[in-house]
Design a protein around this nucleic acid. Structure first.
Lengths: 359, 359
DNA sequence: TCGGAAATGAGGTACGCACCTCAAAAATGC
DNA sequence: GCATTTTTGAGGTGCGTACCTCATTTCCGA
């Protein structure tokens, strides 16, 4: 059998109460005694039974997930995934709630964040561009003891506790190799489109992309980034114009969202399948476009992994537990028409663990 | 607060004992009463508290993971991952043990398997080629109530309870697109190498590869598969000969293992970087070769995911619980030099739930 | 209508841990 | 050596569920 707290007490020659004090870092124990207990722990190879511990605590942590309120399908999918994972309350004593903020209003976001501690939250996961107000808000939260986790787009200068998402620079590099190789390295131009060039994820993707293109595919010239500010209208207009005037454009790298407008523009110009189009995130739309050959490749991060990882990390941070870094790495997925995962969209979304009644 | 069994009892107007009987599918309850309880359950939205349930059960299930005893680095990594996850005993009341069998001796494997029930095992995960003896052994296990999970290579005709691994056909297709596009679709020959052409995963990869090459890249001619039977010696010899005599070979698709010999042969012939080489699985060696540019792309499945998924699935099967299909899908990873994950090789692989003793 | 079988209730113990209280022992300062 | 503070011990309760026993009630068929 696995050793229990009682075994430790016996082994260390102390009482249960003392073991408990040491295990939970409660005050009032001499250094010497702490050491004795820890020695016993390592001698017996004791491992705290988390099921029992959580049960005994029977305290649930309120966690906030804060996402921008854009119409982006990716963000929407992410929101849905978190929503579904809310049932996780069951097993991990986490009470999750979703918050959205107007993407163009950093002050509203800051206000939202700063209100969280008062409302009893114990941790926050946040997807937002790094602005000065945001930086202050995050710092303030952390000062009050709330762990803050950056989601999808990192917030390196805020002191966030963790970043959950792909390495966007590497994602950009990956897009670069694929683009370069798919174009055969030959001459031609590549358009780069991003929603907002301020968001850290965009910047890093662009940097990674350029890095590879310059180094490995000097024959291909990469045009300046086009900024669309999330507006499909703008995107479509700009792309149409651009493509009409630049016959040398053989590839498009869409770093952000607004893919619908993009593929529409391509279709209208009759360029479907003639361009190498690489974009990010698997959404219903990009899936369809991939299947139809309108998009060549999608660089994606799995929303399910993001959500699960977020919850694990938040829990670990709140409890001050170590992480399994390997498990928390969000991989960069390369999706082609040929390796599209079967759509689980209409599969009933069961909770992580379901209740079984008689068969 | 979440509803508990007591709430259900009250809501359904029955006693706790009856609720328990229904929840755990024990006999001696009228249909009508079962329904009443289930109604109460859904009305209250009851979800069994797994922490408490596992605690109360305090029974651990012995699970066997059975892997071939080859020197393949991938299998080795997999074995290590399982080994590390053995600490999972802690949280999921799973007692995991690893078994290896001589890859060329299906009878030894069958004997090993058939001995498991007597030794108190409650479930098996198995990576092995499908032979008639194996089929019978698996059927026998399942008849005795042991769930059997196929690992990496599916065993479709054995009635296995689940398959954990990538869709190998899709993996082959992915290799195909990459090969075709990287070659620019132009003329040339592609060598295909596999360790054993009997293993289901090899067959499916080859099928997927051919499918794409024939359909989308008719200009590229794909040579017959070379079988190496896991021998590096044979592989090296065959490849060297082949490459020397066929100057048109521009790409190599290595479906299985033995990459070391392959890259050696390529190096010796001075063809490093001049061929498009695609192979499977991320191992220390393929990582290095990828970084050095000797291998162009690696199609991989993540051993950590495989191991974790295996444990979750085994547990669910043993407990007769439903699965979260989405989470159990093993994605096909496309690895290029540009998106190689940082090596976590020396990061300690803690179990799904980490242990914390005093900080 | 009665008897046996089936269904249900009442209540208990255990799982491993967190957290509480109060008393007793040990260490400390003077 | 005494009073004071710090440390430790003993013991209890509860978390939500599993699983057990034994008594009681309800059901069904003859």
């Amino acid at each position: 059998m696995r050793p229990t707290v009682n075994d430790i007490a016996r082994e260390a020659g102390v009482s249960l109460a003392t073991v408990d004090r040491v295990l939970n870092a409660r005050p009032g124990v001499r250094e010497k005694t702490i050491k004795a207990v820890n020695d016993a722990i390592s001698r017996l190879g004791y491992v705290r039974d988390l099921s029992a511990a959580n049960l005994a605590r029977s305290r649930t942590y309120r966690m906030a997930v804060v996402l921008p309120d854009t119409e982006s399908q990716f963000v929407q999918t992410l929101a849905d995934t978190f929503q579904d994972a809310g049932h996780l309350v069951a097993t991990a004593r986490i009470d999750l709630s979703l918050h959205r903020f107007p993407p163009e209003d950093p002050h509203a976001l800051a206000a939202l964040l700063l209100d969280l501690p008062a409302r009893g939250y114990a941790g926050v996961a946040l997807m937002a561009p790094e602005t000065p107000v945001l930086r202050d808000a995050v710092r303030s939260l952390r000062a009050r003891g709330l762990p803050v986790v950056a989601l999808v787009s990192d917030l390196p200068n805020t002191g966030r506790d963790h970043f959950i998402g792909t390495d966007n620079r590497a994602a950009g590099r990956t897009a670069g190799v694929l683009m370069g190789r798919f174009l055969g390295g030959g001459p031609g131009q590549v358009m780069v489109i991003g929603s907002s060039l301020l968001a850290r994820d965009m910047i890093e993707r662009r940097r990674g992309f350029d890095e590879v293109m310059l180094r490995d595919f000097p024959g291909v010239s990469v045009l300046q980034s086009l900024e669309t500010h999330g507006s499909g209208r703008t995107l479509r207009q700009v792309v149409t114009e651009m493509l009409a005037n630049a016959p040398d454009v053989r590839g498009i790298y869409a770093m952000g969202d607004g893919h619908r407008a993009l593929t529409q523009a391509i279709q209208e110009l009759g360029l479907s399948g003639k361009l190498t189009v690489i974009c990010h995130e698997l959404t219903p739309h990009t899936r369809k476009a991939l299947e139809a050959g309108e998009i060549t490749a999608v660089i994606a991060q799995n929303p399910g992994h993001l959500a699960r990882s977020t919850l694990r990390v938040l829990r670990a941070k709140v409890d001050n537990l170590p992480l399994d870094e390997g498990q928390e790495q969000i991989r960069i997925e390369v999706l082609l028409r040929e390796n599209l995962p079967p759509t689980p969209s209409d599969a009933p979304d069961s909770a992580t663990e379901a209740t079984s009644t008689a068969a």
